[in-house]
Design a protein around this nucleic acid. Structure first.
Lengths: 343, 343
DNA sequence: CACTGCATTGTTAACGCTCACATGACAACG
DNA sequence: CGTTGTCATGTGAGCGTTAACAATGCAGTG
């Protein structure tokens, strides 16, 4: 077998393959690019030579002449969180199957300058399009301002962003959760919201409020957190002050975890005394104490859809949609039950 | 101000800048590469022209001639998990500050072919080095076989990998956890292990066993899980069968969460009846019920150190280390207490 | 049999940059 | 006042690929 891998001590190039196969370099190029005007026998000979030398095309040279890098960029804020991490995973898979490479750039902070900086960084790499995972209003606002020669698509950034993107229908999810709690007979539902500068937090809060308003239920004051379990815990302590609380809808599972912890510590029964619902359905949610009723969103799917959107733009498909909404799903577990004295 | 961004409808190139500044393209190149042989006044003129046209160097052309892509590749298995996600984050930051771009490739499965495929994919992009986040023995084995013209470094892959890399000292962490439980007066410590094909799982198990052996404590049979909370829950159910269990060391926090859940359900007091220790210190660990004593490992640091290692290899620094061990730290919380009837 | 058309292959010129070397100016030196 | 050296700049080649066009051969056609 082959795998020489060097010719005169350097990486083999197209000309080396051509020489070995007894053809011109252009014929090698044709074989590589599946050009039909190559005799079958010649093609074979070239392929053998390629294998023999373990030749790999130089992507820089190809990019230089075709002006296509086959690379897409992903900008993300905190890939440590479950959501962004899962989206990134979905994105990479979709990119590969669409024939693109993926380059990443993470944001230092959320101001416009930082977003522009990351996009520039990717532009320097000649990416053909940019996908942004940054669900904060500031980031999205910055995004709308970004000067870019290439298409930019947002993923998971609420539904009102001024740039094309794929997002979960947060409002629908929040409505489903709130409605379910009301159906269980709770007089009203309290809400532990996410940071108000996150689009997702805004949408979930809006959905929750809309359902209460429609049902004529009182709309309690919102307690806000920062998505962390710690902030959920603090919100939980706050809710404990109010004996009327019987149902809580948390804007994400981590905060729900904190709430559960606060309630457990205080000896409140869940769901006996208080029902709790989360949002996200992180893998651990079924193993909370008690298992958490929550709204599942498929982050991987979101990433894939976002990437498809971007590819459509990059490849200039006319009439391609510029907005995709993914429906979330309410998952029932042990943290919710009928209100005391209700049906 | 400037930002013309096109010259005759195309992206500006070095020659356009040169013309505008009244110099040769080579002088522009010198300015861009901080060559000292440029008169200050000329440099200024060039910089102005660059800004005026919003010129950005074509990276493909530069890569073609310098044979350096300024890009490093990262191969990872499941970026959805907290550990890998955090490492990726650390890696990207370190890469940026070292002046490199980061391209990612995720693995479909863990066999050697898949690893080779991912590395090849990155090679096709002309990366100058590859960082692998894949802590399974199979992946590391495959890694040792990988044919690659560029340096390959593993991150978080136990301490015995046959390729250079950065890892947490899992054994030390496990020893610390086990020792602590023994000090609390527990007769012995049970272990919920990770999948046996993960190097981390092996090392943690080895550390646990070594301490028990040294202390002359009985070494109970190990219960194995797959890192998930679900498997921890099942392990917990299993442990409940044995009334002698008073202390459990879990190989990660998610499994510890499952164990907590099983014990809570069964009405066992934690830490009154049973003490539980985890490993990782995920952000939620302090909000488990009860808060989890665990072994903290700094994944971000791990990623940074791994990247530094890789950069040292890429830049051919002689005498550079090829192995870095990061020390973990035992974090005490509410899930552990002295054994009943002990000191 | 000259002529057209198609399949196959080769030749040459970009792509935009850096490297090696050439050039010109001007000061310092004997 | 020619020689040497140094700084600042320019010139030309080449990196490895694809695109455009040219050339060849061979079958089919009138």
């Amino acid at each position: 077998m082959g795998a020489a891998n060097t010719v005169n001590g350097r990486q083999p190039v197209m000309a080396d393959v051509a020489r070995l196969a007894g053809v011109s370099h252009q014929t090698v190029s044709r074989v590589l690019n599946d050009n039909p005007h190559v005799k079958e026998e010649t093609r074979e000979r070239v392929l053998v030579a390629i294998r023999e030398l373990d030749y790999r095309p130089n992507s820089a040279a190809r990019t230089l002449v075709t002006r296509r890098s086959q690379t897409l960029g992903v900008v993300s804020f905190d890939t440590t969180l479950y959501g962004p991490a899962s989206m990134l995973y979905g994105i990479e898979q979709a990119a590969r199957s669409a024939g693109y490479f993926v380059s990443i750039a993470s944001l230092r902070s959320l101001d416009g300058r930082s977003v522009q900086e990351a996009v520039d960084r990717l532009r320097d790499q000649a990416v053909e399009g940019v996908l942004v995972i940054a669900p904060q209003t500031s980031a999205v606002g910055a995004l709308a301002q970004v000067r870019s020669a290439v298409p930019v698509v947002a993923v998971g950034s609420g539904t009102q962003a001024r740039v094309p993107g794929a997002a979960v229908d947060n409002e629908a999810g929040a409505r489903a959760a709130t409605q379910y709690l009301l159906h269980l007979g709770h007089r009203t539902v309290h809400h532990v919201a996410g940071p108000s500068n996150w689009l997702d937090a805004q949408a979930r809060r809006a959905g929750w409020r809309a359902v209460l308003a429609d049902a004529g239920a009182p709309v309690p004051e919102v307690v806000s957190g920062d998505w962390s379990a710690r902030s959920g815990y603090e919100a939980g302590l706050h809710l404990l002050d109010n004996p009327e609380v019987t149902a809580v809808f948390c804007a994400n599972d981590h905060m729900a975890l904190g709430v559960l912890r606060a309630l457990n510590e205080a000896g409140r029964g869940i769901p006996g005394d208080i029902s709790v619902v989360g949002f996200d359905d992180i893998p651990e949610a079924s193993y909370f104490t008690p298992p958490l009723t929550t709204v599942r969103q498929d982050f991987g799917e979101l990433g894939r859809r976002g990437l498809e959107l971007l590819v459509a733009q990059v490849e200039g498909e006319s009439g391609s949609k510029d907005r995709v909404l993914v429906a979330p799903e309410l998952v029932l577990r042990g943290s919710t039950a009928a209100a005391r004295g209700a049906g």
